[in-house]
Structures are given as structure tokens and as C-alpha cells.
Design a protein around this nucleic acid. Sequence first.
DNA 1: ACCTGAACACCGTTCAAGT
DNA 2: ACCTGAACACCGTTCAAGT
Lengths: 201, 201
Amino acid sequence: MARRNDHSREELRQMALDAAQFIIEAQGLTALSARKVASRMGYTVGTLYRLFEHLDDLIVQVNARTLAELNATLERAAADCPDAERCVHAATHAYIDFASRHTRRWSALYEHGIEADIQLPRHFTEQIASMYDQVEALLQSVTPQRSAEDIARAARALWGGVQGICVLALSDKLDIDRIETLSEVADSLVGTYLAGLGARH
Amino acid sequence: MARRNDHSREELRQMALDAAQFIIEAQGLTALSARKVASRMGYTVGTLYRLFEHLDDLIVQVNARTLAELNATLERAAADCPDAERCVHAATHAYIDFASRHTRRWSALYEHGIEADIQLPRHFTEQIASMYDQVEALLQSVTPQRSAEDIARAARALWGGVQGICVLALSDKLDIDRIETLSEVADSLVGTYLAGLGARH
DNA sequence: ACCTGAACACCGTTCAAGT
DNA sequence: ACCTGAACACCGTTCAAGT
């Protein structure tokens, strides 16, 4: 062995991301390890450290991928709705659906880097920004008379809320029984919030 | 050594919880380890495993403590307010304040057990339930005409929302600059949601 | 230049052996 | 009965040595 050159650097990077994504989806973020990723790639750990600075690097890049996928899903869901309000609900349900179907990959999004003093890479923060851009656009349609600042704040309030409900529900901390209830709670949040947006001049 | 009997079983349990809490507060949940806890107690790892089934056990018990403390804080904050709406805002600010001051201990609350198939102990779920009870009581005062089911759903929607905003903000994923903005976003959520509760007959 | 394999300092968990 | 110390199978990360 040594000096195989079977794959380009970029190929290796993609292989690592694929392997990591597979392991997270199958066993969860905490079960991820450098050795498992490397072995799934058919390489040794050492090689992984030529591709990424450390494990956190790898994870954040997997998360960026997941976020891109989620963004695309939301975009599709909000594309063709009869009216603006229903677009917000559609996006919310798309979010919940994504979180339910890819629970482990989705929960890695916020599970990771909470205590981090590590700076999130631009690539990742841009994905987050574009997510809020989408929600802002929807809310803009719902209440066109509001200022950009109001809309920005509202988007973060509402979407942070949706995300919070999902986190609690999927880790059994929302104190609810059935999973259908998650949708009800989310509808309550979104519906009431939108009503509030309309009511407050 | 061996057979010291310096401390009762319950004393040992409390020492372990204290040690774990200290380490989480100082270095974060991911830095917690059985060996560190044991060494802080002045015992070996083996002893820890007579007190707890596994590390997750210990963590969930630290979390139950944190939650009890948080509940007490919320109760105090919501105790003496001029009116019901302002009580909700006061509780929200108390929550944000607690999360900011004890970030690592607070984030351990939801960081832990996301992928767990582990059943949460009754002790813990009861703390969660009593938290929602508090929020329900506040919302009940705001809109006394609503059914218990409506209130229950609203409490989970609103409080899940507050929690979601905090998670995102404190892990730099809310796409905001300053920490004061967190309060603004939370006020937007709570204010608009309460307005919505009033507007929807 | 690319990759390996071994090393270092850690993990969670178990359990025979000591008092 | 209580506690230790060593063991097992893992970690993340580094880096000399091989091709």
C-alpha cells in the first residue's frame, strides 16, 4: 500500500462525506467515528486527516449538505400554493416531514457545535441565511406592508419556533403522545402567529 | 483501599451529580466522562457504576436537577406581574436569562438523548410536564375562554418556539449578530403569538 | 506526493481480586 | 459489602516510515 492514488482528492472528500452521512443516518451522530468513516471508504484514518482538519470539519460539511437538501425541499413545497398563508403551512409541513424522515441527519444539524467556540464556515452560514430568506419571502407575501426588519425578525421567530417544536417532539420532550400531535402543535404555532401578524396593525 | 465506607450511597450519588454538573458547566456535556466524574469525587470509575447504570443515567439525573432549577426560576419570574400578558413575557425573559447564564448546563437538556431509544425516567418527564403546566396556567389567564386542549397545544407551541429560538441563537444558527437581538426575536414571537390568540375568536 | 501503521492519551464498561 | 485496578474494545489525532 501507500501511494495508491486511486481517487482524486475531491473524490476522496465526497467518499468521506457519503460514508459519514450513511453512518449518521444509520446510527446517529454520536456513533460517528473517524475510524468508521475511513473503513467505509476503504482507507485508513490517517488519510481522513489529509482531507479534513478534524472530525468537526467533516460533520459540519455533512450538515451543510443536509441543509442544502432541506432548503431545496422547502422551496419545492412553497412553490405552488393557492395563497401566501397556505405556503407557510406547506413549508412547515415539509420541514416536519423532512425531520421525521431523516431524523438523525436532521438532528445532527443542531446537535453539533452547540458548545463550539469553533467558527461555522461561510458555506454553512450561507445555507442558514438562504433558509431564512425563503421564510422571509413567504412572510413578505403574507404581510406586504411590513418593514424588512420586521419581516426578518418574524422569520427567525417563526422558524426558530417550528424548529424548536420539532426538536422537543422528536426527543420526546414535548410531553405529547402521538406524532400526529406534532403537526397540530406546529399548525397552532404558525396559524396563531400569522393571525397575530395580521392583527397587530 | 477497598471498602472505605466514608460515604453513604446517597451521599455518593449527590457527589457524583455535583461533580458532573461542575464538569458540564465548565467544559460542556461532550467533555463529560465517567473517569473525570469519578476522579472529582475521589473514587475510581468502578464505584460510579454501582451508583448509575451507565453515563446516560447520570446525565439525565443532572438534567432533571437543571430542569427543577429552571422551573423554580420561571415560577419566581411569573409570580408578580401586573397582567397576564406581561407574565408570559417575564417568563420568557427568565428563560432566556437562565439559558444565557448557564448555557452549557441548559443546552445539555436537549443535547442529550436525541437519538436515544432510551426511555426518559418518570422523574424527568414530570419536570417537563410541570414546566408546561406553568405555561398553560399563564396562557389560561391570557385567554380564559379557551378549552384546556387549546391551551395545552398553545403552551407547547409557544414554549417550544421560545426554546427553539434560544437553541439557534446560542449556537450561532439564528443568523443574527448581537445577543440583544435574541430578546427582540423572542418578544416578536411571544407578542405576535399572544396577539394571534386574541384575534382568533 | 500519497498512504499506512503504529503510537499516544484518552474513552465506556465490566469484573476478578482484595479488604 | 464496598471499592480497586486492570482489562477489553473502543475513541481522536499525529507522524515517522514506506512506496
